[in-house]
């Protein structure tokens, strides 16, 4: 099976580690993948208003690329991209109005109706590679207490994202165990860090990020992992600055021995 790899804008600039280590790990795990040709930004936020179509088009283009270029398995790493792509894909599948208008505008060779599967890198590890296989491939176990930081975009709304239990998720904890770490469960792991308002309302972002990082530390976390460049930025800049935050792919690469 070949996956169509979608890095998204931030992974080429500020979140390079998420991308680079993600690719290295895929190679180490023997996952076949190819980057989307001429990809563009997913749109960064999912447009909730039912009358918004234009702001969904770039996501539809990417979804369609995966259908046309590859085997219809679109692999994403960034929580926000995953969130936007999965929900827009749901609209293309289920909302006749949006499907009609988007197709009308894009005038694709063949109409797109949500045929692509949007798969987050963590879902790939869980459902296609298997955490047991990762455990076997680990060369340098991460012998640390690691707090999983889910935030909001990965999990909610759970009916649309169907990613994991929205209030008691386990996927990142299972991942941490697989790479030899000890997961730390803490209440704020699925609370929003407030990243969206970090430039316009820094005070709130600081309050929320400090709450998350303090809670994780209070439960013994030595480091945090995230899949989201927004959370990474916000927790690092606006958190308590006492607990380092890593992208999960960086820890994976380290555990697999492919981090230079």
């Amino acid at each position: 099976m070949k996956f169509t790899y979608y890095p998204g804008c931030t992974l080429r600039t500020k979140a390079k580690q998420l991308d680079i280590y993600g690719r290295k790990s895929l190679e180490a795990l023997g996952v076949d993948f190819e980057e989307v040709k001429e990809w563009q930004c997913c749109g960064a936020v999912y447009p909730i208003s039912r009358d918004e179509v234009a702001t969904k088009l770039s996501a539809v283009r990417t979804l369609n690329s995966a259908k046309v270029e590859g085997e219809g398995k679109l692999l994403t790493l960034c929580s926000a991209c995953h969130h936007v792509l999965k929900r827009v894909n749901g609209d293309m599948k289920n909302d006749e109005n949006i499907r009609f208008k988007a197709n009308n505008y894009l005038a694709l060779e063949e109409e797109y109706a949500g045929e692509t599967d949007v798969i987050h890198y963590l879902e790939l590890l869980r459902d296609y590679v298997g955490f047991d296989n990762i455990k076997r491939a680990v060369k340098n176990p991460i012998n640390k207490k690691v707090g999983a930081y889910y935030g909001c975009l990965l999990l909610r709304p759970s009916k649309e994202l169907a990613f994991d239990s929205p209030e008691n998720p386990t996927i990142i904890e299972d991942f941490i165990k697989a790479i030899g770490g000890t997961p730390v469960i803490y209440g704020m792991r699925n609370e929003c860090c407030g990243a969206y308002v970090s430039a316009t309302n820094k005070e709130i972002a600081v309050k929320k990020s400090v709450k998350v990082t303090d809670d994780a530390m209070g439960h013994g976390a030595e480091l945090l992992v995230t899949a989201c460049p927004l959370c990474m930025y916000n927790l690092t800049e606006n958190g308590n600055k006492k607990v380092p935050v890593y992208y999960f792919t960086e820890l994976l690469a380290e555990a697999l021995g492919v981090k230079e």
């Binding site: 998204g8 804008c9 931030t10 600039t13 500020k14 979140a15 930004c41 749109g43 960064a44 936020v45 447009p47 702001t55 960034c78 926000a80 990243a195 969206y196 970090s198 430039a199 316009t200 460049p229 927004l230 990474m232 930025y233 690092t236 800049e237």
Partner: peptide, 19 residues
């Protein structure tokens, strides 16, 4: 003047889309 070096551009796009 609102941003710093480390801010991910995704945040800027979101900001414009939301506001």
């Amino acid at each position: 003047e609102m941003i710093d070096e480390t801010i991910p551009q995704q945040l800027l796009v979101s900001m414009f889309r939301k506001l």
